[in-house]
Each structure stands twice: as C-alpha cells, then as structure tokens.
Lab assay of single mutants.
Amino acid sequence: NKEKKVFISLVGSRGLGCSISSGPIQKPGIFISHVKPGSLSAEVGLEIGDQIVEVNGVDFSNLDHKEAVNVLKSSRSLTISIVAAAGRE
C-alpha cells in the first residue's frame, strides 16, 4: 500500500475534524475512524480506514490511542503520513 503525506495547518478554532481509534490486536496501529464532512481532514483527503503511520516525525506504529491524540494536539501544523485504506482490508 502506498504511503502518502498530507499537511494540515490548524487555523483559528478549526480542529482537525477527524477521530482516531486503535486497530485490533492482529492489526495494531492508529486508524481514522471518523471524518467530519467539510473539515480540514476531509479537505486534505483523509478517509475512514486510513492508517496514520507518522505525525511530525513521530512513529505511530507503537503508540496507544492516548499518546496518538496527544501528538495530534501538540502542534498547530501537522505533517501526517498515512497508508490509505489500510484499515479496510
């Protein structure tokens, strides 16, 4: 599966507009579980089932849900590497 990078700058009070969840035991990782229509996440093409592999240089493969949320909230400017639809297989 091809990795792609998206860049998101949080402007004003707009949030990311997506929710994440941890994958099942047999498929660990952090996946996008919800994308709000019209949100920044939707605008850059994030979709439900995409796996987040890295954010701002932080490897997401071994993070738990709480740590992942903290990384996503730690910066107003995010570089997110995803594997599209990895969670839909």
Rank of each mutant, 00 (worst) to 15 (best):
H34G: 12
S21F: 08
I80T: 04
N70H: 15
E89F: 12
V58L: 09
H65P: 01
N62A: 09
S81M: 08
G29V: 01
S21L: 10
E43H: 07
K36Y: 09
N62D: 13
S22H: 10
A84F: 04
L46E: 04
S21R: 14
G38Q: 08
S33H: 07
E89H: 12
S39R: 01
S22C: 13
G87S: 13
K27A: 09
K4I: 04
S77Y: 12
I30G: 03
K5P: 00
A86L: 09
L78N: 04
K27H: 14
L78F: 07
S41H: 02
R14G: 13
V55K: 01
S22L: 10
C18E: 01
N62F: 08
I52A: 00
I8M: 15
N70D: 15
A84P: 15
S22K: 11
R88I: 11
I52F: 02
L16Q: 01
Q51W: 01
G87Y: 12
H34N: 13
A42N: 09
F60L: 06
D50R: 01
A84Y: 03
E89C: 11
A42R: 05
A86E: 15
Q51D: 01
S19Y: 08
S81Q: 09
F60P: 04
I20N: 00
I48A: 15
S13N: 15
K2D: 00
I82L: 15
S41G: 13
D50L: 00
V44T: 06
S13M: 07
V55L: 04
K5G: 01
I25T: 15
K36L: 13
G87C: 14
R14V: 07
L40S: 08
V44D: 02
I25W: 09
T79K: 13
I80C: 08
T79M: 13
F60K: 03
G17T: 01
G12C: 06
G17M: 01
T79L: 10
C18R: 01
P24K: 08
V44F: 10
E3Y: 15
G45H: 02
S77C: 11
V6Y: 15
F31R: 03
G87M: 10
I8V: 07
D50Q: 06
S39Y: 00
A84S: 14
F7Q: 00
A42M: 08
R76P: 12
K5F: 05
G15A: 10
L16G: 00
D64G: 08
P24I: 06
T79W: 10
G45S: 01
K2C: 08
I32E: 01
A85D: 10
K36F: 10
F31L: 02
G29M: 06
A85G: 15
I25C: 08
K27C: 10
S19H: 09
K27N: 13
E54R: 12
G29H: 03
S41I: 06
S39N: 00
V35R: 00
I32N: 03
E3V: 15
L46M: 11
G49T: 01
I32K: 01
E3W: 06
K27P: 05
V44E: 05
V55T: 03
I20F: 07
S22Q: 12
A84H: 12
V6S: 11
I82F: 13
